[in-house]
Amino acid sequence: MSGGAFLAWLHLVLGVAVTGLALFWAIMGRALTRGAEAADAPRLLAVAAGARWPHVAVPWSARLPLPLLGIFVLVAAAVTGVALGTPGTLVSGLKVVAVVALLVCFRQIGKQPTAALGYAALVLALLIMALSTLMAR
């Protein structure tokens, strides 16, 4: 695998990880606001947002809260994306806007997670993946 292909693979893996993280917030938002704990959903979502990773081997103070981890992974994906080169097209411009919007979403989830933010994060992550597909073609 060439260097360029490796970078593209890494970009793809990070993009998939971002989608997985966004999906997590959408699932948690939906599950907690519709279940028996609906009245307690804001508190439980905040507890989930306070969960840290990695869960072992690293001192607790050095572990990343899940929303911040999402931001780190998204920034890493963006860096690899820039390294791959931005074609300066409408599609790549839209992708950049979506990435910034997703960053804002993850940041807000870190402050006050809601189901709406989870859904928005998922839609943005999927939009980014779809736009990436158009760029790859």
């Binding site: 998939v16 989608t19 997985g20 993280l21 997590f24 990773w53 899940l66 993946m129």
Partner: peptide
């Protein structure tokens, strides 16, 4: 690609990150 991102993304993140973190 979207189906792949959801399938593999959920599997990767739940197994390695959110599952253990929530524990």
């Amino acid at each position: 690609v979207l189906a792949m991102a959801l399938w593999i993304g959920h599997m990767l993140i739940w197994s390695l990150v959110t599952g253990p973190a929530l524990k």
